[in-house]
Amino acid sequence: MGANILTIGHLARKTDTKVETIRFYEKSGLLPAPERTKGNYRAYDLAHLGRLSFIRRARDLGFSLDQVRELLSLSDNRNQSCAAVDAIANEHRSEIERKIRDLQALKLELDSIIDQCGCGTVAECRIIDSLSPSQ
């Protein structure tokens, strides 16, 4: 293969992505299907590498597949306003903030349960009691 052509294995290593995930991104339309070699191997190019790196970074930031799809679509039209991109990012940030609040409330509840534990026997354990269904 040429210098700028990557096999799926090389693409996977360069982007720290599992081969199965790359195939999934292709099937879901996030990553365009590559050309095939005469031996019917996938032949990825630098555009695939860039697009997959974009997808991976967006996923690492927690964007959903639908949000990634929208961001990719917006990214493909570079002359438009980035207001739609900002809206997606702000929506995602709001969801993260909600999850943080939920996790903080969960932590407080767990702290309270742990603090009630007298470290006696399991029969007296407040943690076990709080996890058991009410009788």
Rank of each mutant, 00 (worst) to 15 (best):
L31F: 06
R51H: 07
N90S: 11
S75E: 06
E109L: 11
S132R: 12
I55R: 05
D45G: 13
L30E: 02
Q116H: 13
S132P: 01
L72P: 00
P32N: 15
Q67S: 15
T7W: 02
S64P: 04
K27I: 06
D129S: 14
G29Y: 08
Q135C: 08
F63Y: 09
T7R: 07
C117Q: 00
G39F: 10
S94M: 08
A123N: 09
E95Q: 11
R59T: 13
A43R: 06
S75Q: 08
A33G: 09
G29T: 08
R57P: 02
S112D: 10
R23C: 02
C119P: 04
L11N: 05
I100A: 14
I114Q: 10
D45W: 00
R98I: 02
F24P: 06
D115R: 11
L49I: 10
L11M: 06
P32H: 09
D45Q: 13
L110G: 04
A47G: 10
A87E: 13
S132F: 02
E70W: 02
Y44S: 00
E26K: 03
G120H: 04
H48R: 03
L103T: 12
Q67W: 01
N79D: 12
N40F: 15
L11C: 01
A12C: 03
D86A: 13
R93M: 08
E35I: 01
Q67V: 05
S81W: 00
Y44T: 07
D102H: 11
S73M: 05
S53W: 00
H48V: 03
F24R: 15
Y41E: 00
D76T: 06
Q80R: 10
L103K: 10
Q104S: 11
H92W: 03
M1V: 09
R23D: 03
F24H: 15
D60N: 12
A58S: 13
L49D: 09
C117S: 05
L30D: 00
L74P: 02
R57Y: 14
R56G: 05
N90L: 12
Y41W: 13
C125M: 04
Y41N: 15
N4R: 13
D111H: 09
D45C: 09
E26Y: 03
Y44C: 01
R57T: 14
D129N: 14
H48D: 08
R126F: 02
D102M: 11
H10N: 10
A89F: 07
A105V: 09
E20D: 12
R51D: 04
I114E: 07
K107E: 11
K99Q: 15
Q104G: 06
L108Q: 10
T21N: 09
G39Q: 15
H92R: 13
G39W: 07
M1F: 15
I113W: 09
Y44H: 13
I8P: 05
I88Y: 01
S28F: 03
N90W: 07
D115E: 12
Y41V: 04
E91C: 10
G62N: 10
D66S: 09
F63T: 04
I96S: 06
H92L: 06
I113V: 14
A83W: 01
S28P: 01
G39R: 10
A89V: 15
L108A: 15
C82G: 06
E20Q: 14
D76K: 04
A87N: 12
G9K: 13
E70G: 02
G62A: 02
A47M: 12
I8R: 07
D129M: 12
S75V: 00
